[in-house]
Design a binder for these strands. Structure first.
Lengths: 209, 209
DNA sequence: TAGATTGTTAATCGATTAACAATC
DNA sequence: TAGATTGTTAATCGATTAACAATC
């Protein structure tokens, strides 16, 4: 039930607003103007006001924005109050790091199970979770009302896993596999592509020397 | 020594071109038109031609592009032929995962040392590397001509570490700490912000239901 | 040659910035 | 009230798409 059509550019700035407002809150700062926020966050004051007004008039003329109220509003816009059940597939180095990542709670995501295809990994314990056989993905997703899958597997086989996940009703994928997954349009995929990030760094480095 | 001013939008598409061309190469496909590439990569043919022509005329009228030649050209544009020495700071879960990440070689980056501030981590071995005390960062950077630092540390203290790195001549940072680092303008920072990615997924999930 | 497809210019679209009336 | 700052419209800027002459 989105309001207007919010552009991806705006959406990707929202977490940054949330983070900076959280920092201000930690410093007990109660109000901030778009100009002051501009100085610390680096977007123009005009852009900040435009961005926020996509979602509502959170400010007050002559005063600015109440930090705590705005922080909470953006949290709601980001859906941080919603709860989602997640599974993590691929319990290798990266998968284990992500499984231990503390940010999930803040985003309302709860990991319910870990999977791996490697027989030697199955049965090992990571945090509170025993690593399960990938064959059990379908049954676990169905029985635990899993909404989201976190993919920490190589690109080979990733599409096949996603097809299986989609077929049992998964609605979102946090994808660390270096591949562009094909999914029905009502399934959300958010990619974290380390290779693309590293190659971008390589490009920028080679430009300066 | 950049050519024109290439926009970030274009730069961030380059790794994707490289990846898809690599896939085509693996399939022994020798030539491709912008239209065919458009069908598989999802950018418009027009955009593909515009993007590539920022760097040179790699195609041939009536024929299209030679896959191998274009793959190699984009590799060069990305600076994948350049060699950089790197250190990794923060050998926790994520740091270890990144240290084991195989993508570095392809990008020409070689990790020379790992550091951690936790006394209990120091001396442990990850791959071929003993984890060193963070106090030794300066001397190791100087003695090994380190170009790049990979930051896998919490946000508290990250800016201070970066200041130290900059003072001994680091030129690039691959930053996994959830903070916007301040660096001189000739130092490159490429961020991988897992929280921002996760919050974006949360937003998009909350939109569909 | 005829057909295909590029390289490139022009047109369009969307995002950012500027300006200012509204109003707290 | 006077000053400050928003919300919002208008102007600008930049990126994407369309079109087509050049040419392989």
């Amino acid at each position: 039930m989105g309001t207007k059509n919010i552009s991806m550019a705006v959406i990707r700035r929202l977490p940054k607003y949330h983070r900076y407002l959280g920092d201000l809150l930690d410093k007990d700062i109660q109000r901030i103007s778009s100009k002051e926020l501009s100085d610390i966050i680096g977007f123009t004051a005009s852009q900040i006001r435009q961005d926020l007004n996509n979602f509502g008039g959170f400010g007050q003329q002559g005063y600015g924005y109440n930090v705590e109220a705005l922080y909470n509003e953006i949290g709601k816009i980001l859906g941080l109050d919603k709860k989602y059940n997640a599974i993590l597939i691929g319990a290798g180095n990266l998968g284990q790091a992500i499984a231990n990542y503390s940010g999930f709670r803040k985003a309302g995501f709860e990991i319910k199970a870990l999977f791996d295809a490697n027989p030697r990994m199955i049965g090992l314990k990571i945090r509170d979770f025993e690593i399960l056989d990938s064959q059990e993905i379908e049954s676990v997703v169905k029985e635990n009302e899993i909404d989201i899958a976190i993919l920490c597997i190589p690109k080979n086989g990733a599409q096949e896993i996603v097809n299986r996940l989609v077929s049992v009703g998964i609605k979102g994928v946090w994808n660390f596999a270096p591949i562009d997954l094909e999914v029905p349009k009502d399934v959300i995929v958010e990619n974290v592509n380390l290779t693309e990030s590293l190659f971008t760094l390589s490009y920028l480095m080679s430009e300066i020397e």
